[in-house]
Design a protein around this nucleic acid. Structure first.
Lengths: 334, 334
DNA sequence: CAGGATCATGTTATCGATATCATGAACCGT
DNA sequence: ACGGTTCATGATATCGATAACATGATCCTG
């Protein structure tokens, strides 16, 4: 059973292959009857166009590559979801890759991706190897960094300052009267968004003349709930006077909150807890956890629309789309 | 700045394009010195092979398509992760698509995917439209259904019986003395794994001569934590005698557990709670939630290895790889 | 109604790699 | 030392669609 190709459809409809090609596009100049006839034949024969050949011929792959640290993180899953929502209807397909928070893996993936000739490349901000950065810079296609506002952007940016947002939340804890604030973060986080958040914590503490040295980092990103629990125990052993915890992410915050409960510490009366990212768990826990709300889906949508614009306009200028990231104060730090 | 192609590298190294092509493959018969020289030129010129052209020429796309309901669900994210782990080193790239639990979207994606000539297609079990099923059956490539043991498999299967697993957990609740057991599920779930779990609940209840009609379904899949909370309130209003809750998934179970706490109902003393899937939250909550443990990462790895086998062996026979799905009893149903 | 514009369709060249077969050199055993 | 074998490499055809240009028909417009 040989595979049907365009020429077979063309013969069946008594037209040329080119006419079939036109019939399958929206814009093609073709008479309505011919199109109807061809689409009918396509259906009868069960023809599935070969986009590999099509992409090769038109020199347009129809791919947009997306690199995320992990899909296990609902943020990136939502961002990818928003991207798909915008890009699929435009005929673009996502090529998704997980870096696992590793710069080496990112470099490998970037190279793999570029071989597929994507029309744009979307990378979640993280440190890059020199080679990776060079590949991105010389790729000749739009490159969008997301989820951070880098100091030295490669090209376009859709994001926000993790550092600033983290500092704001820390400032809130300080304003509400806390003084002995500890931070739960990640180790091996150089160049990551987590590192920026840690800096934000330090910024705010220093600005208030407080000691920013109460920090634990037990695990590599992404830190999970259980590690958050463990981190809280560690903190209370080392610094029993701690009266607030700022966390790199909501799962860690939930872990800390849970461990407080297990240890009989009241939240927020004894200890305030704050997270980052507005994960579902921060809304559903008792008490709800104060967090930085970031609209991950919106990052995906905005990025998708930006990509479409960049592909049609061929503009050279770098675009920076700021994304809102605002503290939402809930009962855990009331 | 024109793009470097293979022929440019060939000229620079004083060889033919074919020799360059061989140098870039592992298996190619080529002398070590020539290869070294060519790889050096590749590096100097910054040559990035065009796999679009390569795939077209060799008639092998190097793609494996994967359809999942949602990546927001850590299960599927892990499965995808396991797949990538196995398939990437074999030179295969994942083409990931989200169906959003919609059969229409699945059909659309299957068609999109097939145009890219993937070498295998992996679909998470769910109901298919007739057209989608036909496309899958006539695709001419290995098709693997995962995350369920379908009654009428398309070809290969890596999964388990959601129905049986759910029945086992329900049976556990019954064995431990509960009688008025309610079920939190999803609406519009026909043909989904959630529907199978609901059937499993009913099976076990009937077998024990108990009433399986205490069921609420407030939302379409995937049900979230907040909806779990709401469902629990609904249940206690309608059936105040309820002494156990079986849930379609852990997030729903956590929501139910949380609402019990908010309402002052003790778990497990007043109400037992059980979930499905061994999400992180079920391990980290207080009390930990009894659940069905499924190794999502392993499903990905096993499927990846199966795909590699199918691609090399060209066997015709359907393969069924059973995956363990066992109840793990924790304190929430103690 | 002439000359140009528009429209539907056809023809041909082409995208960049690789499969396949061809070729000559080196190597080997008897 | 000769026929056969292995090895490294080259030449050529090819994958299936589409871009770009060509063609003839129809349709205006002054």
């Amino acid at each position: 059973m040989k595979r049907i190709k365009m020429i077979d459809v063309a013969r069946a409809a008594g037209v040329s292959a080119m006419t079939v090609s036109r019939a399958l596009k929206r814009d093609g100049r073709i008479s309505p009857e011919t199109r109807r006839l061809i689409l009918q034949k396509v259906d009868e024969l069960g023809y599935v166009p070969d986009r590999l050949a099509g992409s090769f011929s038109s020199q347009k792959s129809g791919f947009v590559s997306v690199l995320v640290p992990s899909l296990n993180n609902p943020h990136f899953a939502e961002t990818a979801s928003g991207l798909q929502e915008i890009l699929n209807p435009a005929g673009l397909q996502l090529l998704l890759g997980y870096t696992g928070y590793s710069a080496a893996q990112a470099e490998y993936l970037i190279e793999m991706m570029l071989e597929r000739r994507p029309e744009a490349l979307i990378v979640t901000y993280d440190s890059h190897t020199p080679k990776a950065r060079k590949l991105l810079e010389q790729s000749g296609i739009p490159v969008v960094e997301i989820w951070e506002m880098p100091q030295h952007p490669i090209q376009h940016v859709v994001g926000f300052s993790n550092r600033k947002a983290s500092a704001e939340m820390t400032a809130h804890l300080i304003t509400s009267g806390r003084r002995n604030i500890a931070y739960i973060g990640e180790c091996d986080d150089s160049g990551t968004r987590g590192a920026e958040r840690r800096k934000g914590f330090r910024d705010a503490m220093r600005r208030a003349g407080l000691d920013p040295s109460r920090q634990v980092a037990l695990a590599a990103p992404p830190i999970n709930m259980m590690q958050g629990r463990e981190a809280l125990r560690t903190i209370l052993e080392r610094w029993p006077e701690t009266d607030a915890i700022m966390c790199v992410s909501d799962p860690a915050a939930f872990g800390a909150l849970t461990e407080c409960r297990a240890l009989g510490r009241r939240v927020p009366e004894d200890i305030a807890v704050a997270g980052f990212g507005d994960f579902e768990i921060s809304r559903c826990s008792i008490p709800p956890i104060s967090t930085i709300v970031v609209d991950a889906l919106d990052i995906g949508r905005q990025t998708g629309q930006l990509v479409l614009r960049l592909l049609s306009e061929k503009t050279e200028q770098s675009v920076y789309l700021p994304i809102a990231a605002r503290p939402e104060i809930r009962q855990s730090s009331g």
